[in-house]
Simulated scan of single mutants.
Amino acid sequence: MNRPILALTCGEPAGIGPEISLRAAWELRHEVRCILLGDAALLAQSAYEIDAQMRVAAISIQAWRNSGLPHFPTDCLTVIDCPVAEPVRPGVLDARNGRAVLQTLDLAVQGALSGAFAAIVTAPLQKSTINDAGVAFTGHTEYLAEVTHTPQVVMMLAGGQSPHLRVALATTHLALKDVPAAITADSLARTLDILHADLRSKFGIARPRILVTGLNPHAGENGYLGREEIEVISPALEAARARGIDARGPYPADTLFQPKYLEDADCVLAMYHDQGLPVLKFASFGHGINITLGLPLIRTSVDHGTALDLAAAGLGHADHGSMLVAVRAAADMARRQKRA
């Protein structure tokens, strides 16, 4: 486990995913063995154009299933070949390649659940391409929960340059009008249980301190701006504390993200996507990561999208900093769980 084996899905082939995956896997090859899942021909060509010294060796899905991973030397990246249906044009989406992208994710999950991979790291994909291919898809987080039969997961982003800044979400990709109904005492209880457990097991924090935002401006201002804090959030936090979880709040979100509060916290739980994530992305965009908690496997990802415009401009324009952080974080979690 000093050099854990990670599955690295290369994401949307027309985006920057293949490039940042190759660059991160190559740079960290002496620390981590990244098994890339994507179109082998595309990755081999990109690797040669990025660095002529970068060696790539491909194996078929069937060969991997039958015989496992071959023992290539450290200076050779392994690719499990998931061929695209149509030639890739950088920056140009093609729905006919959507199922090949989804296949990489399915294989990574299968490998992680079987023990072949210690964790999975995902490059950004394009939701619309998968939906246009005829598969209902709302995002990595929701899909991973579905295929692993996990009733609830928690999305958390962490700042790469400020490791103490972690922001988890009580709800994920929902329209704003649907958020209040989705925040219930039961859902908050499950979210806090997952946060507490995974901060302990995956991050090695003995007694996690979780600060929780309110839903409404000024945390409802004693009911004048909404009663969710009084009727749902505060009782859920009181119940969590009775279970031994150090959950504090609810706090007004507009003033919570200050150093004097955050220095006393291991994680902030925000009520919805655009309440907590803009703060974290402002502080660490390009060096932050996305982590899915509650799964029966370790999954990290970058904090950005497919950047089709950068891909269209050619290799060398994308920053792989977030992918480096995501790979290192997944490897650290895998080592920690192995020791436990």
Rank of each mutant, 00 (worst) to 15 (best):
L165S: 08
L176K: 09
V179W: 11
D193L: 08
L195I: 01
L188S: 04
T171G: 10
A158W: 07
A189V: 02
N131Q: 15
F203R: 14
P217K: 15
A185E: 15
G220I: 10
A219K: 11
V153C: 00
P208T: 00
A145H: 04
T150F: 10
A145E: 05
P151D: 06
V167A: 08
S162N: 12
H173T: 11
T129A: 07
T150Q: 12
G214V: 07
L195V: 02
P208E: 02
L211C: 05
D132T: 12
T184S: 14
V212D: 01
A158G: 08
I230P: 05
Y224M: 13
T171H: 07
V135D: 00
D186N: 12
K177T: 08
H218A: 12
K202S: 02
S201C: 10
L195P: 01
T191Q: 07
G204W: 10
S162L: 13
E231C: 12
G226P: 12
A185P: 09
H140F: 04
V179S: 08
I205D: 02
V153M: 00
N131F: 12
T172L: 04
P163F: 06
V153T: 00
V167H: 03
G226I: 10
K127A: 04
M156H: 07
D132R: 15
G139Q: 05
I130K: 06
H149Y: 08
G134N: 10
Q152R: 06
I210C: 01
G159E: 03
I205S: 03
E146F: 10
V147Y: 07
T184N: 13
M156R: 04
H149N: 07
G160F: 12
A175G: 15
L195Q: 01
A168K: 02
T171V: 13
T148Y: 08
L215Y: 10
K202D: 06
V135T: 10
H149P: 03
L176Y: 13
R207D: 13
I210W: 01
I205Q: 06
R207A: 14
T150K: 11
H173N: 10
A185G: 14
H164M: 06
Y143L: 01
A136I: 03
Y143M: 04
G223N: 15
P151F: 08
L174I: 14
A206P: 09
Q126Y: 08
L211S: 05
S162G: 07
G226M: 13
N222D: 15
E146L: 14
G220V: 11
K177L: 07
E221I: 15
M155Y: 06
L195C: 01
G160R: 14
T191E: 03
